[in-house]
Amino acid sequence: MSRLPAIPVQRRDSRLRVGSIGDWVFRRITALFALSIVALLAGMGFEMARASALSVASFGFGFLSGVNWDPVHRSFGALPFVFGTLLSSLLALLIAVPISFGIATYLSEFAPGAARGPLGFMVELLAAVPSVVYGLWGTFVLVPWLRDSVEPLLSSCCGGLPFFAGPQHGFGMLAGAVILAIMITPTISSVSREVLGVVPLTLREGALALGATRWEAVRIAVLPYARSGLFGAVLLGLGRALGEAMAITMLIGNRAEISSSLFAPGYTMASVIANEFTEATEDLHLAALAEIGVLLFLITVALNIVARLLVWRVGRLAARGEA
């Protein structure tokens, strides 16, 4: 009796039970492409470390605390850029987080079923608008509005504070923070919505059955469960804000100064790379810009790792709870 063709069993994890050259080759080829993703990430870290080596060797940790950025005199200190990046991103979070949580809660808990799809799609379209178009809109629409309406209002009602002092150009930290807030809102809200979506239905039902109102059910049963995932969503938004280059370059004013006023122009790490990298001719200048790039890369990679772990945790919790 001739042997039957071997049929692979246990297909779930596709481990090869029987030797088939086609399967072996197929697995190796796809693995090679998957490896390319890992290699790309590692290659980026390596290449940028190499590009910035000169600057790291010349300035050491002084690079981070130096406030003077003067390519002509070969003096490079990154503090104004770090400050500008952190401040604009944190301000953006201050605006975007409450709004995004509101959106996520509305879309996953309160909205009528028929409205969820279209509204969610429109919020996601906010993320689809290219960054440079936000920059264009910001330059000709947002900045004049801030200069003529918002900034005079802020300085007249809380003018005593140092944050709202000084000349009102429109271009400056405030404009940068507002545009960043608009751009990260879809990120934070869609990840938050995902997180709220994996919270088991039974938790809500339990709270509602005990007489809680819809909001109380969310507050008592859903939010505590989703907390770490929501925090992850905020971190992902922060990562996007830190790395955003075009829109903020067009709006923040691009002056390497540290000012307490939100009306004053600032500068960010991504902006200085975007503005100066093609014009830099000296090796040290290029290396200094690359070092800023490395910092940005490391910060965002670390943020993303933490954020993903937090978001995954909620999913795992849910999977375990239901099993």
Binding site: I37, M48, R50, G239, A270, I273, T300, R308
Partner: peptide, 26 residues
């Protein structure tokens, strides 16, 4: 390895596009 690659893909989708430009420049 799949878990590692998936994780790297997720991390990569979050890194700033300008740093990808720097990488390709180099």
């Amino acid at each position: 390895f799949a878990k590692l690659a998936r994780f790297c893909a997720d991390v990569m989708s979050g890194i700033p596009s300008i740093t990808v430009g720097l990488f390709v420049y180099g």
